[in-house]
Design a binder for these strands. Structure first.
Length: 393
DNA sequence: TTAGGGTTAG
Protein backbone atom coordinates (compact mmCIF):
# COMPACT_ATOMS: atom_id res chain seq x y z
CA UNK A 1 0.00 0.00 0.00
CA UNK A 2 1.32 3.42 -0.92
CA UNK A 3 2.10 5.53 2.11
CA UNK A 4 1.57 9.26 2.12
CA UNK A 5 3.11 11.60 4.63
CA UNK A 6 0.62 13.26 6.94
CA UNK A 7 0.19 17.02 6.52
CA UNK A 8 2.27 18.46 9.35
CA UNK A 9 -0.40 20.94 10.47
CA UNK A 10 -2.90 18.14 11.05
CA UNK A 11 -0.71 16.27 13.59
CA UNK A 12 -2.16 18.03 16.62
CA UNK A 13 -5.69 17.58 15.31
CA UNK A 14 -5.08 13.84 14.78
CA UNK A 15 -3.64 13.54 18.26
CA UNK A 16 -6.71 15.23 19.76
CA UNK A 17 -8.94 13.05 17.58
CA UNK A 18 -7.29 9.92 18.90
CA UNK A 19 -7.63 10.99 22.51
CA UNK A 20 -11.28 11.99 22.14
CA UNK A 21 -12.24 8.86 20.17
CA UNK A 22 -12.46 6.60 23.18
CA UNK A 23 -14.30 9.29 25.11
CA UNK A 24 -17.15 9.15 22.54
CA UNK A 25 -16.98 12.93 22.50
CA UNK A 26 -19.12 13.70 19.45
CA UNK A 27 -19.18 17.51 19.77
CA UNK A 28 -15.39 17.58 19.88
CA UNK A 29 -15.15 15.25 16.86
CA UNK A 30 -17.57 17.55 14.96
CA UNK A 31 -15.42 20.51 15.90
CA UNK A 32 -12.22 18.80 14.71
CA UNK A 33 -14.01 17.70 11.54
CA UNK A 34 -14.93 21.34 10.78
CA UNK A 35 -11.34 22.37 11.45
CA UNK A 36 -9.99 19.72 9.08
CA UNK A 37 -12.44 20.86 6.39
CA UNK A 38 -11.29 24.46 6.83
CA UNK A 39 -7.66 23.41 6.45
CA UNK A 40 -8.53 21.24 3.43
CA UNK A 41 -7.11 18.07 5.02
CA UNK A 42 -10.40 16.18 4.69
CA UNK A 43 -9.30 14.90 1.28
CA UNK A 44 -6.19 13.31 2.77
CA UNK A 45 -7.02 9.59 3.12
CA UNK A 46 -4.98 9.04 6.30
CA UNK A 47 -6.55 12.02 8.04
CA UNK A 48 -10.05 11.23 6.77
CA UNK A 49 -9.78 7.60 7.93
CA UNK A 50 -8.74 8.73 11.42
CA UNK A 51 -11.82 10.91 11.47
CA UNK A 52 -13.93 8.02 10.17
CA UNK A 53 -12.70 5.81 13.00
CA UNK A 54 -13.60 8.48 15.55
CA UNK A 55 -17.12 8.63 14.10
CA UNK A 56 -17.41 4.82 14.05
CA UNK A 57 -16.84 4.81 17.81
CA UNK A 58 -19.00 7.84 18.63
CA UNK A 59 -21.78 7.95 16.03
CA UNK A 60 -21.99 5.36 13.28
CA UNK A 61 -24.61 7.27 11.25
CA UNK A 62 -22.16 10.18 10.90
CA UNK A 63 -19.45 7.66 9.97
CA UNK A 64 -21.63 6.35 7.11
CA UNK A 65 -22.22 9.90 5.83
CA UNK A 66 -18.50 10.63 5.94
CA UNK A 67 -17.62 7.34 4.21
CA UNK A 68 -20.06 8.14 1.36
CA UNK A 69 -18.48 11.56 0.85
CA UNK A 70 -14.83 10.47 1.09
CA UNK A 71 -12.94 11.29 -2.12
CA UNK A 72 -10.33 8.58 -1.52
CA UNK A 73 -10.44 5.27 0.36
CA UNK A 74 -7.87 2.61 1.09
CA UNK A 75 -7.95 -0.80 2.78
CA UNK A 76 -7.81 0.78 6.25
CA UNK A 77 -10.86 2.91 5.40
CA UNK A 78 -12.86 -0.14 4.28
CA UNK A 79 -11.75 -2.15 7.33
CA UNK A 80 -12.92 0.66 9.60
CA UNK A 81 -16.38 0.44 8.00
CA UNK A 82 -16.54 -3.35 8.50
CA UNK A 83 -15.94 -2.75 12.20
CA UNK A 84 -18.56 -0.01 12.24
CA UNK A 85 -21.26 -2.30 10.83
CA UNK A 86 -20.05 -5.09 13.11
CA UNK A 87 -20.44 -2.95 16.22
CA UNK A 88 -23.92 -1.88 15.15
CA UNK A 89 -24.85 -5.55 14.66
CA UNK A 90 -25.42 -5.30 10.90
CA UNK A 91 -23.61 -8.44 9.71
CA UNK A 92 -25.06 -8.28 6.20
CA UNK A 93 -23.87 -4.73 5.58
CA UNK A 94 -20.44 -5.61 6.99
CA UNK A 95 -20.29 -8.52 4.55
CA UNK A 96 -21.35 -6.14 1.77
CA UNK A 97 -18.33 -3.94 2.54
CA UNK A 98 -15.97 -6.93 2.82
CA UNK A 99 -17.32 -8.36 -0.44
CA UNK A 100 -16.94 -5.23 -2.53
CA UNK A 101 -13.72 -3.74 -1.17
CA UNK A 102 -10.97 -3.75 -3.82
CA UNK A 103 -8.13 -5.16 -1.69
CA UNK A 104 -8.23 -7.19 1.52
CA UNK A 105 -5.43 -7.62 4.05
CA UNK A 106 -5.19 -9.73 7.23
CA UNK A 107 -6.99 -6.97 9.16
CA UNK A 108 -9.93 -7.11 6.72
CA UNK A 109 -10.33 -10.85 7.28
CA UNK A 110 -9.91 -10.43 11.05
CA UNK A 111 -12.53 -7.69 11.10
CA UNK A 112 -15.05 -9.81 9.18
CA UNK A 113 -14.37 -12.91 11.31
CA UNK A 114 -14.77 -10.76 14.45
CA UNK A 115 -18.01 -9.38 13.03
CA UNK A 116 -19.47 -12.88 12.62
CA UNK A 117 -18.23 -14.12 15.97
CA UNK A 118 -19.25 -11.05 18.00
CA UNK A 119 -22.73 -11.17 16.55
CA UNK A 120 -23.26 -14.82 17.41
CA UNK A 121 -22.57 -16.30 13.94
CA UNK A 122 -19.76 -18.48 15.29
CA UNK A 123 -19.90 -21.13 12.58
CA UNK A 124 -19.69 -18.51 9.82
CA UNK A 125 -16.67 -17.00 11.57
CA UNK A 126 -14.86 -20.35 11.63
CA UNK A 127 -15.79 -21.03 7.98
CA UNK A 128 -14.39 -17.65 6.94
CA UNK A 129 -11.20 -18.38 8.90
CA UNK A 130 -10.88 -21.66 7.00
CA UNK A 131 -11.31 -19.79 3.70
CA UNK A 132 -8.69 -17.24 4.74
CA UNK A 133 -6.16 -20.02 5.40
CA UNK A 134 -6.94 -22.50 2.63
CA UNK A 135 -8.26 -20.40 -0.26
CA UNK A 136 -6.43 -17.12 0.30
CA UNK A 137 -3.36 -18.74 1.91
CA UNK A 138 -3.09 -15.83 4.32
CA UNK A 139 -1.18 -16.16 7.58
CA UNK A 140 -3.32 -15.18 10.58
CA UNK A 141 -1.93 -12.98 13.34
CA UNK A 142 -2.76 -12.67 17.04
CA UNK A 143 -5.85 -10.56 16.38
CA UNK A 144 -7.28 -13.08 13.89
CA UNK A 145 -6.68 -16.00 16.25
CA UNK A 146 -8.24 -14.10 19.15
CA UNK A 147 -11.52 -13.73 17.27
CA UNK A 148 -11.43 -17.33 16.06
CA UNK A 149 -10.97 -18.52 19.65
CA UNK A 150 -14.08 -16.60 20.72
CA UNK A 151 -15.96 -18.57 18.09
CA UNK A 152 -14.36 -21.84 19.27
CA UNK A 153 -15.57 -21.18 22.81
CA UNK A 154 -19.17 -21.43 21.57
CA UNK A 155 -18.81 -24.40 19.22
CA UNK A 156 -18.56 -27.35 21.61
CA UNK A 157 -16.25 -30.23 20.72
CA UNK A 158 -15.46 -28.94 17.21
CA UNK A 159 -14.50 -25.60 18.72
CA UNK A 160 -12.34 -27.29 21.33
CA UNK A 161 -10.48 -29.25 18.64
CA UNK A 162 -9.73 -26.10 16.63
CA UNK A 163 -9.01 -24.11 19.80
CA UNK A 164 -6.45 -26.67 20.93
CA UNK A 165 -4.72 -26.61 17.56
CA UNK A 166 -4.61 -22.79 17.66
CA UNK A 167 -3.07 -23.02 21.15
CA UNK A 168 -0.48 -25.45 19.74
CA UNK A 169 0.21 -23.09 16.83
CA UNK A 170 0.77 -20.16 19.20
CA UNK A 171 3.17 -22.22 21.35
CA UNK A 172 5.01 -23.69 18.36
CA UNK A 173 5.60 -20.26 16.87
CA UNK A 174 6.76 -18.89 20.20
CA UNK A 175 4.14 -16.15 20.12
CA UNK A 176 3.75 -14.11 23.27
CA UNK A 177 0.42 -14.74 24.92
CA UNK A 178 -0.74 -11.15 25.22
CA UNK A 179 -3.64 -10.21 27.44
CA UNK A 180 -6.33 -10.40 24.74
CA UNK A 181 -5.19 -13.70 23.28
CA UNK A 182 -4.55 -15.21 26.71
CA UNK A 183 -8.00 -14.18 27.94
CA UNK A 184 -9.88 -15.75 25.04
CA UNK A 185 -7.79 -18.91 25.31
CA UNK A 186 -8.60 -19.22 29.02
CA UNK A 187 -12.26 -18.56 28.26
CA UNK A 188 -12.31 -21.09 25.43
CA UNK A 189 -10.93 -23.85 27.68
CA UNK A 190 -13.25 -22.88 30.54
CA UNK A 191 -16.36 -22.79 28.32
CA UNK A 192 -15.44 -26.16 26.78
CA UNK A 193 -15.11 -27.64 30.28
CA UNK A 194 -11.32 -27.93 30.43
CA UNK A 195 -10.80 -25.89 33.56
CA UNK A 196 -7.34 -27.32 34.23
CA UNK A 197 -6.10 -26.10 30.85
CA UNK A 198 -7.79 -22.77 31.49
CA UNK A 199 -5.94 -22.39 34.83
CA UNK A 200 -2.65 -23.43 33.26
CA UNK A 201 -2.95 -20.79 30.54
CA UNK A 202 -4.09 -18.20 33.09
CA UNK A 203 -1.00 -18.92 35.23
CA UNK A 204 1.27 -18.52 32.19
CA UNK A 205 -0.14 -15.12 31.25
CA UNK A 206 2.21 -12.24 31.98
CA UNK A 207 -0.44 -9.51 31.88
CA UNK A 208 -3.94 -9.97 33.19
CA UNK A 209 -6.73 -7.44 33.20
CA UNK A 210 -10.22 -7.47 34.64
CA UNK A 211 -11.51 -9.55 31.71
CA UNK A 212 -8.84 -12.22 32.23
CA UNK A 213 -9.69 -12.52 35.93
CA UNK A 214 -13.41 -12.49 35.15
CA UNK A 215 -13.24 -15.41 32.71
CA UNK A 216 -11.34 -17.60 35.18
CA UNK A 217 -13.69 -16.63 38.05
CA UNK A 218 -16.81 -17.34 35.95
CA UNK A 219 -15.27 -20.56 34.60
CA UNK A 220 -14.44 -21.81 38.10
CA UNK A 221 -17.90 -20.96 39.41
CA UNK A 222 -19.59 -22.63 36.46
CA UNK A 223 -17.70 -25.88 36.93
CA UNK A 224 -18.39 -26.26 40.62
CA UNK A 225 -15.28 -24.59 42.05
CA UNK A 226 -17.09 -21.85 43.95
CA UNK A 227 -14.54 -21.46 46.74
CA UNK A 228 -11.66 -21.34 44.26
CA UNK A 229 -13.53 -18.66 42.31
CA UNK A 230 -13.81 -16.56 45.45
CA UNK A 231 -10.12 -16.91 46.30
CA UNK A 232 -9.29 -15.86 42.72
CA UNK A 233 -11.48 -12.80 43.28
CA UNK A 234 -9.58 -11.94 46.46
CA UNK A 235 -6.26 -12.36 44.63
CA UNK A 236 -7.49 -10.12 41.86
CA UNK A 237 -8.29 -7.36 44.33
CA UNK A 238 -4.94 -7.82 46.05
CA UNK A 239 -3.04 -7.19 42.83
CA UNK A 240 -5.08 -4.02 42.33
CA UNK A 241 -7.44 -5.00 39.53
CA UNK A 242 -10.88 -3.39 39.87
CA UNK A 243 -13.83 -5.77 39.36
CA UNK A 244 -16.63 -4.86 36.97
CA UNK A 245 -20.27 -5.97 36.73
CA UNK A 246 -19.39 -9.23 35.04
CA UNK A 247 -16.83 -10.09 37.70
CA UNK A 248 -19.54 -9.76 40.34
CA UNK A 249 -21.85 -11.98 38.30
CA UNK A 250 -19.15 -14.67 38.47
CA UNK A 251 -18.55 -14.08 42.18
CA UNK A 252 -22.25 -14.24 43.07
CA UNK A 253 -22.85 -17.33 40.95
CA UNK A 254 -19.89 -18.93 42.80
CA UNK A 255 -21.63 -18.13 46.10
CA UNK A 256 -24.90 -19.59 44.82
CA UNK A 257 -23.19 -22.70 43.49
CA UNK A 258 -21.20 -23.35 46.69
CA UNK A 259 -24.00 -22.37 49.09
CA UNK A 260 -21.91 -19.53 50.56
CA UNK A 261 -24.80 -17.32 51.64
CA UNK A 262 -22.89 -15.01 54.01
CA UNK A 263 -20.18 -14.40 51.40
CA UNK A 264 -22.91 -13.74 48.86
CA UNK A 265 -24.48 -11.04 51.06
CA UNK A 266 -21.07 -9.44 51.53
CA UNK A 267 -20.21 -9.44 47.83
CA UNK A 268 -23.63 -8.15 46.84
CA UNK A 269 -23.06 -5.13 49.11
CA UNK A 270 -19.59 -4.76 47.63
CA UNK A 271 -21.03 -4.03 44.15
CA UNK A 272 -22.06 -0.53 45.24
CA UNK A 273 -18.85 -0.04 47.21
CA UNK A 274 -17.12 -0.24 43.83
CA UNK A 275 -19.45 2.42 42.41
CA UNK A 276 -21.39 -0.10 40.33
CA UNK A 277 -25.15 -0.63 40.16
CA UNK A 278 -26.51 -4.16 40.67
CA UNK A 279 -27.69 -5.64 37.37
CA UNK A 280 -30.56 -8.05 36.75
CA UNK A 281 -27.94 -10.84 36.59
CA UNK A 282 -26.71 -9.95 40.09
CA UNK A 283 -30.25 -10.07 41.45
CA UNK A 284 -30.78 -13.38 39.63
CA UNK A 285 -27.70 -14.89 41.28
CA UNK A 286 -28.75 -13.71 44.74
CA UNK A 287 -32.29 -15.07 44.33
CA UNK A 288 -30.75 -18.33 43.12
CA UNK A 289 -28.37 -18.39 46.09
CA UNK A 290 -31.11 -17.86 48.70
CA UNK A 291 -33.42 -20.24 46.85
CA UNK A 292 -30.85 -23.05 46.63
CA UNK A 293 -30.10 -22.62 50.34
CA UNK A 294 -33.83 -22.98 51.13
CA UNK A 295 -34.14 -19.36 52.27
CA UNK A 296 -37.23 -18.69 50.16
CA UNK A 297 -38.39 -15.78 52.33
CA UNK A 298 -35.16 -13.92 51.69
CA UNK A 299 -35.26 -14.75 47.99
CA UNK A 300 -38.80 -13.34 47.81
CA UNK A 301 -37.72 -10.24 49.71
CA UNK A 302 -35.00 -9.62 47.10
CA UNK A 303 -37.53 -9.91 44.27
CA UNK A 304 -39.98 -7.60 46.07
CA UNK A 305 -37.45 -4.88 46.78
CA UNK A 306 -35.13 -5.07 43.75
CA UNK A 307 -34.71 -1.86 41.79
CA UNK A 308 -35.19 -3.58 38.43
CA UNK A 309 -38.19 -5.44 37.04
CA UNK A 310 -37.64 -9.16 37.77
CA UNK A 311 -37.23 -11.11 34.53
CA UNK A 312 -38.05 -14.66 33.56
CA UNK A 313 -34.66 -15.98 34.78
CA UNK A 314 -35.15 -14.48 38.23
CA UNK A 315 -38.59 -16.06 38.48
CA UNK A 316 -37.28 -19.40 37.21
CA UNK A 317 -34.68 -19.47 39.99
CA UNK A 318 -37.38 -18.72 42.51
CA UNK A 319 -39.82 -21.32 41.16
CA UNK A 320 -37.09 -23.98 41.01
CA UNK A 321 -36.36 -23.33 44.66
CA UNK A 322 -40.08 -23.59 45.48
CA UNK A 323 -40.11 -26.96 43.72
CA UNK A 324 -36.93 -28.33 45.34
CA UNK A 325 -37.89 -27.18 48.85
CA UNK A 326 -41.63 -27.94 48.40
CA UNK A 327 -42.65 -24.39 49.32
CA UNK A 328 -46.03 -24.45 47.60
CA UNK A 329 -47.48 -21.50 49.52
CA UNK A 330 -44.69 -19.31 48.24
CA UNK A 331 -45.34 -20.61 44.75
CA UNK A 332 -49.06 -19.79 44.93
CA UNK A 333 -48.30 -16.33 46.22
CA UNK A 334 -46.36 -15.46 43.06
CA UNK A 335 -47.73 -17.69 40.32
CA UNK A 336 -50.32 -15.25 38.87
CA UNK A 337 -47.72 -12.52 38.61
CA UNK A 338 -45.29 -14.87 36.89
CA UNK A 339 -47.86 -16.14 34.40
CA UNK A 340 -48.81 -12.55 33.53
CA UNK A 341 -45.29 -11.65 32.53
CA UNK A 342 -44.38 -14.84 30.64
CA UNK A 343 -44.60 -14.43 26.89
CA UNK A 344 -44.46 -17.44 24.56
CA UNK A 345 -41.12 -16.32 23.11
CA UNK A 346 -39.41 -16.04 26.50
CA UNK A 347 -41.06 -18.97 28.24
CA UNK A 348 -37.68 -20.37 29.27
CA UNK A 349 -39.22 -23.46 30.85
CA UNK A 350 -41.52 -21.46 33.13
CA UNK A 351 -44.65 -23.30 31.96
CA UNK A 352 -43.05 -26.67 32.75
CA UNK A 353 -42.01 -25.49 36.20
CA UNK A 354 -45.44 -24.00 36.96
CA UNK A 355 -47.22 -27.11 35.75
CA UNK A 356 -44.95 -29.35 37.88
CA UNK A 357 -45.56 -27.17 40.92
CA UNK A 358 -49.34 -27.38 40.45
CA UNK A 359 -49.09 -31.18 40.23
CA UNK A 360 -46.96 -31.35 43.36
CA UNK A 361 -49.46 -29.21 45.25
CA UNK A 362 -52.34 -31.39 44.00
CA UNK A 363 -53.90 -28.66 41.86
CA UNK A 364 -54.65 -30.87 38.91
CA UNK A 365 -57.01 -28.50 37.07
CA UNK A 366 -54.49 -25.71 37.16
CA UNK A 367 -51.73 -28.09 36.02
CA UNK A 368 -53.89 -29.11 33.06
CA UNK A 369 -54.65 -25.47 32.19
CA UNK A 370 -50.91 -24.64 32.07
CA UNK A 371 -50.15 -27.85 30.19
CA UNK A 372 -52.66 -26.78 27.50
CA UNK A 373 -51.01 -23.37 27.26
CA UNK A 374 -47.69 -25.14 26.77
CA UNK A 375 -49.07 -27.43 24.02
CA UNK A 376 -50.65 -24.46 22.18
CA UNK A 377 -47.38 -22.63 22.36
CA UNK A 378 -45.47 -25.63 20.95
CA UNK A 379 -47.96 -25.88 18.08
CA UNK A 380 -47.46 -22.16 17.34
CA UNK A 381 -43.69 -22.65 17.39
CA UNK A 382 -43.89 -25.68 15.08
CA UNK A 383 -46.13 -23.73 12.65
CA UNK A 384 -43.68 -20.84 12.73
CA UNK A 385 -40.71 -23.04 11.87
CA UNK A 386 -42.54 -24.90 9.06
CA UNK A 387 -43.53 -21.50 7.67
CA UNK A 388 -39.86 -20.53 7.57
CA UNK A 389 -38.82 -23.90 6.05
CA UNK A 390 -41.40 -23.63 3.27
CA UNK A 391 -39.82 -20.34 2.19
CA UNK A 392 -42.49 -18.07 3.67
CA UNK A 393 -45.30 -19.54 1.56
C1' DT B 1 5.65 2.66 9.88
C1' DT B 2 2.06 6.71 11.24
C1' DA B 3 -5.01 5.45 10.37
C1' DG B 4 -7.86 0.10 10.75
C1' DG B 5 -9.00 -5.58 12.71
C1' DG B 6 -8.97 -8.66 19.14
C1' DT B 7 -10.72 -10.36 25.18
C1' DT B 8 -15.48 -11.39 29.98
C1' DA B 9 -22.53 -12.73 30.70
C1' DG B 10 -26.98 -16.73 33.98
Amino acid sequence: MQRHSIPFDSFSILFTLKSCTHLHNLPLINHLHAHLLKLGFNSHVYVATSLLHAYVVASFRDACDLFDEMPGRNTVTWNTMITGYSKSGDVEKAWGVFDRMPLRDVASWSAMIACYVNNGHWGNGLTLFHEMLVVEQLKPDQVTLGSVLVGCAHMGSIGLLLGKSIHGFIAKNGWVLNVELGTVLVDMYAKCGFLKNASRVFDMMQDRNVKSWTVIICGSAQHGYGKEALSMFEMMKEVGVRPNELTFTGVLSACAQAGLVEDGRKYFRMIEEYGLAPTIQHYGCVVDMFGKAGLLGEAYEVIKTMRLEPNVFVWCSFLSACKVHKKFEMFERVVDRVMEMVKPENDGGVYTLVSDLYVLSNKWDDAERVRKLMVNQNVRKARGSSFIRSGAG
